[in-house]
Design a protein around this nucleic acid. Sequence first.
RNA 1: GGAGGCGUAGCUCAAUUGGUUAGAGCGCUGCCCUGUCACGGCAGAGGUUGCGGGUUCGAGCCCCGUCGCUUCCGCCA
Length: 608
Amino acid sequence: MTEISQRYRTIHCGRIGESDIDRKIKVSGWIHSVRDHGGIIFIDLRDFSGLVQVVIDPKMSFYQSLENWRLETVVCFNGTIIARTKETVNSKLSTGAIELVAEDMEVLGESEVLPFQIAKDDCAPEHLRLKYRFLDLRREKLRNNIFLRGNVISEIRDKMRQLGFFEFQTPILTSSSPEGARDYLVPSRIHPGKFYALPQAPQQFKQLLMVAGFDRYFQIAPCFRDEDARADRSPGEFYQLDVEMSFVTQDDVFQAMEELMTHLFKKFSTKKVTATPFPRISYREAMLKYGCDKPDLRNPLTIIDVSKIFENSAFNAFSGVVKKGGVVRAVKVPGISAQPRKFFDDMVKFAQEVGSKGLGYIVFETEQLKSPIVKFLSETEIASIRTEAQISDGDVIFFVAEKEQKAAEIAGKVRTELATRLNLIEKDCFKFCWIVDFPMFELDPETNAIAFSHNPFSMPQGGMDSLVNKNPLDILAYQYDIVCNGIELSSGAIRNHRPEIMYKAFEICGYGKETVNNKFGGMINAFKFGAPPHGGIAPGVDRMVMLLADEPNIREVIAFPFNQQAQDLMMNAPSEVTEKQLRELHIKVEMPKKIHVQEPLKSKEPEQ
RNA sequence: GGAGGCGUAGCUCAAUUGGUUAGAGCGCUGCCCUGUCACGGCAGAGGUUGCGGGUUCGAGCCCCGUCGCUUCCGCCA
């Protein structure tokens, strides 16, 4: 250490150990807690590295001035490290075997009364924690999350380099893209009436780097989308591990990502990680078996289709739906026939809450069947259910009958709810899977027109041949998602790098060449000058850290997050700007009609 | 944009379901305490029950409006 750095400390709080006994040291940090015995005073002093106990004897000259300090005051202590007596060792503290006997002290930064406690979790409301984020970040949990985040990111960089990837930066001020989420716009001063957009993702740039011949790209990329928040979605901005590779097939991308994910999740967690290769589940199969395209494989329950059994059933609630083109889906739960009536009533209520007309069920007890619907079913039908669902005594099966998409969705929610209520979710593991074979096109439910179902840049499976010869709705894309514990970490795709196939795909959706040239001119033009086959993926860094930190909310792994209304309560963003700034940008603000007029101060008008 | 939930001390919550002076823990202020580590003990300050209106003999509680926070839906190529 240089002499300059010793002005404030010769060692860090959490790194003092038994080897420092009898040494004279100097430490600086925050007063974490005070235990004042009238005579002797104990202070826990905290810095980024941890806590150390400081002992202050009443004989010390600075003893009197102690009274003015509050918790979280920043102080510097000089003193000697001594071993604690056997009875006073604190095994909960990494520095619990020693303590610092203070000989001198200096106040470096005073603190006002705190809006919430640092040392104890006092369940402060989130808006306060966000307003005083610098205090919240002093707390152990958040601090650990942020350290974890930094370590994960630096490990990603090491591993990606090792896998042959090269790190790039791409522009933050770019152009507004017609597809996707709402853009954040930045007005141009030099070009009146024109706007930059912050990138929703560096999608086109990374593809252009492939065309430029860089072969393997990665970036810890900030992405900006003006969309509303969810628990796992921070509004405004978030980070992706953006990846793109040239001369690869889908399997090459999977292999690289599996190696990275396995490495990261094993390094930063003790939980079990899915063995490679991760299971690959087609979109169709996922929708059938799990009722969603991001299945939580920790949940052992699966959904089966039993429509056939009820095609000609006397039970109209089911056969009627099937005859109209709908489906009957079933979830079997083994060994829960002893659940009380209330459990089944609650499940029916739940299904109705998520939009189902009802929830049929059959309880297979050893001697008899208990069920509100069994009286409508024939012996043959019940026998078929037994075979199809491989029923044993004690099992229960639940039924949902709706149009296909709705049935899948409701059955999926019922599957999740059953596993949650019955505590069937496997613990201490990360279950990864790939969802593959997404459809290239789908019908717009409102206009009934054919539209891209994911993104227009994916290569259709079968290439031009499929586009020309197949029913568009039957064409699959080289489009995939990676899912962990029911959280979608990322979408990715093998890109469509052939201009003629791109034009054809857009044509199927009703767009001419001009539209493609206008909307994606930069990229389509580049593809005309020798583009390599390429593909990639972009896992959400925040979501990965969230899983590793075992946090249910993404804001807990971001140092300075927006609140749900996309505001930074600490920095007061967004905020109004001066007239001069607006003038320079050629901007005139027109407030929405529904303005919140500031309430006039209460003034009692004299009665007439 | 839509639906639900919440709003009481600096913070977290309570108030026997409409009934006397709105309570507790943490924090804060003062005093006591020399081995604590969630130190302990005594005393004290702190409230226009988000705001506005209404019903009622009486409103923290019921009704209407409004503002704020939050979860979900829409949205997220």
